[in-house]
Design a protein around this nucleic acid. Structure first.
Lengths: 137, 137
DNA sequence: AATAAAGCTCTAGTCATTAGAGCTTTAAGA
DNA sequence: TCTTAAAGCTCTAATGACTAGAGCTTTATT
């Protein structure tokens, strides 16, 4: 039995976000007290944790809605859940490799200054000169 | 000399997005033809490519504005440039390590299905079970 | 000269929140 | 019991980074 503030603390999801999820139909409308305040049960906490977890992993609300819907019809759902997870894994992998390339490029740029103090600033020149990393991303 | 459509094709940035970047001050206002159409030079193309790359890598508009300002204002000191470059390098490194953790977890989640078709879908169960990755995100 | 394609501005919509105004309910102390 | 303070409520509007559409003008081609 948690009020929204407690639920927020437990899950790390901010209060307006919880209400937004409710409006979006991601979480069930909770029971209200006589004074109209939301009152959550353990299941509400669990579902919100699930959503938080999936959001942290970068899944979209729609992805999550799919997963949530799927979890209520478990017999034909695993394949689809697998697809969603894999699709997202691919997305993350691409992102990582792109970031590695930028890291390399930024390192190159940042290190220039070690020798660059003799003449003009080479960092700026290098940032402006995009040819050096053409085609890499 | 490109019109906006050509620039869009060359860079992969959609036309309204180019105009949006202009409004945001990320790219310079280009010369207009007698008929008021935007006409870009090589430099315009290069800057937009740079922005596209940085966006693909997940840098925010504000991050990019800093880099762009840096690259187009040589009066700024080399020290400042060095600081900004390093700051972004740090930013990228953090981002990479965060994504690596997500990758690991998603792999764990996605691979579950290899054995999971026997019983209930373990992907959903795993996403719901936050204990398995507590503290990681 | 006519038509299609591409350009223009301006407004409004998207997603996933987040912030604020202005009110009510609840818990705790005097 | 009365009074605050904290926490709740609804509703509206803003954020960031686009994206789409209406309704018009310019340019290229036949």
């Amino acid at each position: 039995m948690y009020l929204i503030g407690e639920l927020s603390k437990q899950t790390g999801v901010k209060i307006p976000t919880i209400r937004y999820y409710e409006e979006m139909g991601l979480i069930e409308k909770p029971h209200r007290t006589s004074g109209n305040q939301r009152q959550y049960e353990k299941e509400g906490l669990e579902r919100l944790s699930f959503i938080k977890h999936a959001r942290d992993l970068g899944l979209s609300i729609e992805d999550i809605r799919e997963l949530v819907d799927l979890s209520s019809s478990p017999e034909k759902s695993c394949k689809q859940a697998h697809e969603i997870a894999h699709h997202h894994l691919q997305f993350i992998k691409t992102k990582i490799s792109k970031l590695r390339r930028l890291e390399k490029e930024l390192k190159r740029v940042a290190l220039l200054d070690d020798e660059g103090h003799v003449g003009k600033c080479k960092i700026i020149a290098s940032l402006a000169d995009h040819r050096l990393c053409k085609g890499e991303h």
